[in-house]
């Protein structure tokens, strides 16, 4: 990879200052950024590591109400500690990548990157989570802005993510075994006010809410109620791993599996 300057601040304030520099970019767990830099798809002048900032790490919550995950918390730590508050979220984290990737990769890095096949965006969008940055709070519905794009501004750093706890929830992931991302994944969350369904891995626009399924499941929370329902194949990703029609089909299958798992 091209060479760059490396800094590892220990406070958020220092990181913000470092990121104001020319061609500076934040580095979280690096499990996507470092491979893309090796391919020379990315060439920051300065990498600002966020892993030395203790305030950005940790899981805290209030049973039955909400759980807050620090942005630099690894998938392994979420898998180990979030289950007491939000089992479906811990289960999702435990199935990202492989064990060594989970020991480095972070929730903040995953959300800022917004890979169209990543797992976390589905949990954040289906749960109606709130993304907190050094500048503001952003609702999940406003955060994702298409494939690999978010509304984050230059120098804006995600500091934590707060999830409201649904009455029932589950994530069903159809694994793409080489990349270990979701070929298609569905996160279903049932709240008192209705059901939210977020789909990852399927759409060219990145993670999205499947509103037709939400209306059906809000009336009747059962897989049978979704029988025959599929989102439009138009706009779905089509590649060597699966056609657009196949991914649309998987949306139905994975959503029904998530409903069954949520119970």
């Amino acid at each position: 990879m091209y060479n760059f300057d490396f800094v590892r601040p220990s406070t958020l304030a220092e990181a913000v200052i470092a990121l104001a520099g020319d061609e500076a970019q934040p580095l979280a767990g690096g499990q996507t950024l470092l491979p893309s830099m090796k391919q020379r798809l990315n060439m920051p002048g300065t990498l600002v590591s966020l892993t030395g900032i203790a305030d950005l790490k940790g899981v805290s919550g209030e049973a039955g109400a909400s759980v807050t995950i620090g942005a630099a918390t690894t998938h392994a730590q979420v898998a180990a500690e979030a289950g007491a508050f939000y089992p479906a979220l811990a289960d999702l984290a435990a199935r990202i990548g492989d064990p060594a990737v989970r020991n480095r990769g972070t929730i903040g890095g995953s959300l800022a990157n917004n890979d169209p096949s990543a797992c976390y965006p589905a949990a954040v969008l289906a749960s109606g989570a709130t993304i907190t940055t050094n500048k503001r709070e952003i609702a999940a519905d406003d955060f994702f802005d298409g494939m690999f794009a978010t509304v984050l501004e230059e120098g804006e750093i995600i500091t934590s993510v707060t999830f409201p706890i649904p009455q029932a929830a589950a994530y069903a992931k159809f694994l793409q075994p080489a990349s270990r991302f979701a070929l298609t994944g569905a996160f279903v969350a049932r709240f008192e006010g209705g059901v939210r369904v977020a789909i990852t891995g399927a759409s060219e626009g990145g993670v999205f809410r499947w509103s037709d399924a939400e209306s059906v499941l809000s009336n009747s929370f059962s897989g049978d109620a979704l029988a025959g329902k599929l989102p439009a194949a138009e706009g779905m990703i089509s590649d060597l791993h699966g056609s657009a029609a196949y991914r649309a089909h998987l949306c139905g299958v994975m959503t029904r599996r998530a409903v069954a798992a949520a119970g």
Binding site: F6, R8, L27, G30, Q31, L34, P35, L47, S49, T51, A76, P99, A100, V101, N103, R104
Partner: peptide
């Protein structure tokens, strides 16, 4: 104490 892929971590992060 955590297993990591050392090809996907910078030496300076291990300081």
């Amino acid at each position: 104490g955590k297993a990591v892929k050392s090809c996907t971590m910078l030496a300076m992060e291990a300081e």
